[in-house]
Design a protein around this nucleic acid. Structure first.
Lengths: 275, 275
DNA sequence: TGAATAGTGTCTGTGAGACAATATTAT
DNA sequence: ATAATATTGTCTCACAGACACTATTCA
């Protein structure tokens, strides 16, 4: 092997083609919570935890649904690629975006070796003024879970996607699981795994951060906020406890929400601690 | 564009060279806690939080220190690559290994575009019977932190590595920071960032999992266990509180540790909840 | 005996879970 | 008036922080 005297000299000679190379994609789970008007004028709108999926119109996995994603450019930062894809899909900038996990099973793409770095994005659906792209659709998320499996149902009113994930504890010292796809016929690639790990990350972060406010409009009632927690966590919360916990994070405004056949509610906003 | 009738047909034709490709490495932060005998026979061994670094003997970054790492093979799973590197470095199998983050700044390697998926490994130093490879060395970790920076000092008795990381809150809703290297002249690549995020992940998981037991021998005293928490968290804990919290996770044995010039202590072991 | 560590008792304040009670609106 | 939601009060229990106290060993 030739002896180099300096880093510059070495780099000039360096032939990067000696290693076999691979491709990288960024895939994004875009979560939101959607409203659904009720027939009873007294009742509140029903909220649903939802995710944006795209129908593939090309091989591989033609006609299957998948997460918005795309190849990372050779000179492009991974997170920039994620932002680019997110903007293409939603026309929104400045969205909450967090790296989740990098999936690298050699067989996850039948074409060639493709690594996927997944991101989670949270949006407030009210900001989506324009129509989303025609091959994209919001799906409601419903999950149930037992000791060794997770069952997920996604549905958009026309179509229902069901899949089943097996989970086994990796080691007894932590809460980490090894997930594997047991049943899935409508989602492309290993995206069921990505979705499950995104849901799990979001549930966790709800409990110990203010992440929920990325999915809320500027003004909201505490009832709405509580509902968002409830649909994501998949369980009912007790009102007084919820209000105690959230109290320090929100600020009462002088606006009220009226119109329902019941006591009107004060509108709150997220408290900005810098002010 | 040609119209394909089936996935098989499409794949046969697929030319994967149309995209510019890149390389992927797996880099591992191997953490451990080391003992240091005291001159005073009464005193306990002093423990240090430590990390394993390797001195580079090749360009780029010749003679700088870096985390153990290497290229991921074209047919190799990323985690398998991490395990392979870990085994080469320590001769140990079945080590706690957790994916941390994927770093993909286009300029992080001067040779070419290299993505790095980082892993954190935890080992019990007592299991390291063989000498580690000659160009590797354990460094004690010391960190201090203020509002906008993290200062890290690594030292192995002969050499001292200092670096400084700037941190800025990414958004007000979560505890996520954007880290950037402000001062660093002895570590290769962006490894200061990897080390800082590894330390941060470990500190967090100490608080809400049993992850610490991956760094402990089978039998240990509660004093030792508490010391491990203390050197990693970088703060003293109160004995009664610590014992209360840890009580449900450990099991008293009938062994005792004697020999110090003080009251001997009962040896405990990690409680296996399956039994 | 004394330095050093091991181990326990207990008070106090905080905060979550549970449930009860009151308040207010549109029809 | 009533259904539905909004909002508050309060009791209890679990648990962490703080500090004081007792126990045991070896040179």
């Amino acid at each position: 092997m030739k002896e180099y005297q300096s880093e510059e000299e070495f780099l000039k000679d360096y032939d990067s083609s000696i290693f076999e190379k691979l491709s990288l994609t960024a895939d994004i789970i875009i979560f939101s919570v959607s409203d659904e008007t009720q027939n009873n004028y007294r009742k509140l709108n029903k909220k649903h935890f939802s995710v944006l999926l795209v129908k593939r119109d090309n091989y591989p996995f033609k006609d299957k649904w998948c997460l918005p994603g795309g190849f990372v450019g050779i000179e492009e930062d991974i997170e920039d690629a994620a932002k680019r894809i997110l903007y293409n899909e939603t026309n929104l900038h400045d969205i909450y975006l967090e790296q989740l996990y990098t999936f690298g099973n050699p067989k996850r793409d039948p074409r060639m070796r493709v690594i996927s770095t997944s991101y989670m994005a949270l949006i407030d659906k009210n900001k989506l003024n324009e129509q989303i792209t025609p091959n994209a659709s919001w799906f409601h998320i419903m999950t149930t879970e037992d000791k060794e499996s997770i069952f997920v149902t996604l549905e958009n009113g026309k179509e229902e996607i069901k899949f089943k994930i097996g989970k086994t504890l990796k080691e007894k010292t932590t809460d980490r699981y090894k997930y594997e796809i047991l049943e899935n016929d409508k989602l492309a690639f290993d995206h069921p795994l990505v979705i499950v790990s995104g849901i799990s990350r979001l549930k966790n972060k709800l409990e110990y951060t203010d992440i929920v406010f990325n999915m809320m409009p500027e003004y909201f009632t505490l009832g709405e906020l509580q509902q968002v927690y409830e649909v994501i966590l998949g369980k009912k919360l007790l009102d007084p406890a919820f209000r105690r916990i959230i109290a320090s994070k929100v600020e009462k405004t002088d606006k009220m929400q009226t119109g329902g056949g019941h006591r009107p509610s004060v509108l709150f906003k997220y408290k900005n601690h810098d002010e």
